[in-house]
Design a protein around this nucleic acid. Structure first.
Lengths: 246, 246
DNA sequence: GTTTGAATTTGAGCCAGCGCAACGTTCTCT
DNA sequence: AGAGAACGTTGCGCTGGCTCAAATTCAAAC
């Protein structure tokens, strides 16, 4: 649970900050380059190892963050210590924006799924950004809405679908959001254990493991330790569909 | 699925619009009376019968709404027709605020749980309200955040708790949000069927019915058709807790 | 290269809760 | 008042997926 500091000008780790890619950062897509620069100039950059927390549920929301590179899991922990993953955040998005929804503390814990580069600003700058840059708030709230929709979808899934369908859906979502095309399929771009997958689908790692084994035998997926590659996405789509009566 | 129009000045149905109660309307708590009046003057008032939809998932978000009196269920329907209730909205809150989260269409369906009085405005007025009234946006986003939190909690519950615990939790939430104290307990303030309860807890109406029967035998609750009264909230709290090892 | 711990696989048994079905009760409408 | 619909109850059998347990594979650290 440690994280190392990198210095702010460590260009090598910030390849995406190329001019032409600034608008790739979700909250900035409506802003002018000059404005974006001004916001970025006030940021602190930091590198996190895989599997460390960026902020913790319940802690005072002293900063807000933007994921420049990597992937982050948003998780919550039950009183009994079980973890539940709410969603995955891809590079280019804000996180920890408690202020945007009127909270003083972070509503969940953010854990890096890969080594990640994260910008952050003190929360006190938030109101200024919203006031000064028109599109900033709009884009941010779109993000909030999208996440709400995703969580909402999770509720639907968990309420109506079987475990097999949920796991198939989770894999499809992961390859859509974070898939990397390789020779014979699409690979999930970060290390993911059976346990992670089970926390994403509200099942046990045993069941997740069994499903992956079965699918591997059928040639739908290939998986090594912490790596999953989907060979036949369409077959997964079929599985993910609620089975209609024949 | 019909709804009757009432005229705008039908004071009898708008008892809450008394001066002293204006700030009871969540989005207005930070505004001056004059400002609130100005917003309300632009609203259309309408009465809905119980069990009708105010707006439907996927429809263009032409208006946004405020629930003046009554209760509304936010539901989504699966391709196979199963309903899942995401949350309940009490009087005083906004709903259908697709614009606030950058959506062009309603992300879910809103169904009245009781006869309800609803104000509405054309969506095109939204940006003006946000720009003209400072606290309006803030309060609105707090509401969005709260709902996000609630849905998030639902995901946690469904992922980690047994049906019995979830139903107990749902009842507790309902009596907290909408409970009315009566002589010997707390009654849920609107008609609720076993089916409704099951859609709230991702189970079947059969299981919900069995649980209520069991609890009634133990004297924890009393229920008539469409009415549930909780006699012993504390016992429900105990049930809702994940059972620790003895 | 060996040790150690994390990740994964697989088996076997079991039970919460679902599906189905039948029946009872209470409303509503004419 | 009677018919029909909506709502609620309860029994029974079945099974998806959980729990418990044990063995195996892999990776990193020493």
């Amino acid at each position: 649970m440690t994280a190392r500091m990198t210095d702010l000008t460590h260009r090598k780790t910030l390849p995406r900050l190329d001019e032409s890619l600034l608008t790739y950062l979700t909250p900035f897509s409506k802003l002018e380059k000059r404005e974006i620069r001004s916001i970025l100039d006030q940021a602190t950059s930091r590198r996190y190892d895989e599997g460390v927390s960026i902020f913790d549920e319940g802690a005072p929301a002293e900063r807000f963050f933007m994921l420049l590179d990597g992937y982050v899991r948003v998780v919550r922990v039950t009183p009994t210590g079980e973890q539940v993953t709410a969603l995955h955040i891809p590079a280019g998005q804000l996180l920890g924006i408690a202020k945007a929804i009127g909270r003083e503390t972070y509503p969940a814990t953010a854990v890096t799924a890969t080594e990640s580069i994260v910008l952050s600003w003190p929360t006190r700058l938030w109101d200024g950004f919203v006031a000064d840059y028109d599109g900033f708030a709009t884009e941010t709230y779109k993000t909030v809405g999208d996440r709400m929709g995703e969580i909402h979808n999770r509720v639907m899934e968990m309420a109506t679908q079987q475990v097999e369908q949920r796991v198939a859906n989770a894999l499809l979502r992961l390859i859509n959001q974070t898939g990397r095309k390789v020779s014979d399929g699409i690979e999930i771009d970060f290390p993911i254990t059976r346990q992670d997958l089970s926390e994403l689908t509200a099942t046990t790692l045993h069941t997740a493991s069994r499903l992956l084994s079965a699918w591997e035998k059928q040639g739908l997926v290939q998986s090594k330790r912490k790596r999953i590659k989907v060979l036949d996405p369409h077959a997964l789509v079929v599985i993910s569909q609620p089975k209609s009566d024949l």
